[in-house]
Simulated scan of single mutants.
Amino acid sequence: MTDADADLPIIDAHHHFWDLGHGRYPWLEDHVIPFRYGDYSALRQRSYLIDDFLGDHGRHRVVKSVHMEAEWDPRDPVGETRWLHALHDRTGWPHAMVGQAWFAREDIAEVLAGHAAFPLVRSVRQKPAAAPSPDAFVAGAPGSMADPAFRAGYRLLSRHGLHYDLQTPWWHLGEAADLARDFPDTLIVLNHTGLPSDRSPAGLDGWRNAMAALADRPNTMVKISGIGVPGQRWTPDLQRAIVLDTIRLFGADRCMVASNFPVDSLCATYDEIFAGLKEITADLAAADRRALFHDTASRTYRPA
Rank of each mutant, 00 (worst) to 15 (best):
residue 141 A to I: 06
residue 176 A to C: 03
residue 126 Q to P: 01
residue 124 V to T: 08
residue 177 A to N: 00
residue 159 R to Q: 10
residue 176 A to R: 00
residue 160 H to N: 06
residue 161 G to P: 01
residue 141 A to C: 08
residue 133 S to Q: 14
residue 118 F to W: 14
residue 184 P to I: 04
residue 151 R to Q: 15
residue 170 W to R: 14
residue 162 L to R: 04
residue 127 K to F: 11
residue 182 D to W: 01
residue 123 S to A: 15
residue 138 V to T: 14
residue 145 M to T: 13
residue 122 R to D: 01
residue 186 T to C: 04
residue 186 T to I: 15
residue 110 E to C: 02
residue 182 D to Y: 01
residue 164 Y to T: 08
residue 163 H to W: 12
residue 174 G to S: 13
residue 187 L to Y: 01
residue 111 V to N: 01
residue 157 L to I: 11
residue 176 A to S: 02
residue 170 W to I: 13
residue 132 P to Q: 06
residue 134 P to T: 14
residue 172 H to W: 08
residue 174 G to T: 14
residue 168 T to K: 02
residue 108 I to M: 10
residue 126 Q to T: 03
residue 180 A to R: 00
residue 179 L to H: 00
residue 108 I to H: 04
residue 170 W to V: 08
residue 139 A to Y: 14
residue 130 A to G: 05
residue 113 A to T: 04
residue 117 A to M: 04
residue 185 D to M: 05
residue 151 R to G: 02
residue 115 H to I: 12
residue 155 R to D: 08
residue 119 P to G: 09
residue 120 L to F: 07
residue 117 A to G: 13
residue 111 V to H: 00
residue 172 H to Y: 08
residue 162 L to E: 02
residue 166 L to V: 08
residue 181 R to T: 09
residue 130 A to R: 09
residue 189 V to Y: 12
residue 148 P to Y: 10
residue 170 W to E: 09
residue 172 H to N: 11
residue 118 F to G: 04
residue 117 A to N: 09
residue 134 P to F: 13
residue 159 R to D: 13
residue 180 A to I: 01
residue 174 G to E: 13
residue 147 D to S: 10
residue 149 A to W: 07
residue 139 A to G: 05
residue 144 S to K: 12
residue 163 H to A: 15
residue 125 R to W: 10
residue 117 A to F: 06
residue 182 D to I: 03
residue 123 S to C: 07
residue 189 V to N: 15
residue 174 G to I: 08
residue 185 D to I: 03
residue 183 F to L: 10
residue 157 L to D: 01
residue 185 D to F: 02
residue 152 A to L: 08
residue 137 F to T: 07
residue 148 P to M: 09
residue 144 S to Q: 13
residue 162 L to A: 03
residue 121 V to F: 06
residue 107 D to R: 13
residue 137 F to A: 14
residue 139 A to C: 03
residue 123 S to T: 04
residue 150 F to R: 08
residue 130 A to C: 08
residue 143 G to P: 02
residue 181 R to Q: 10
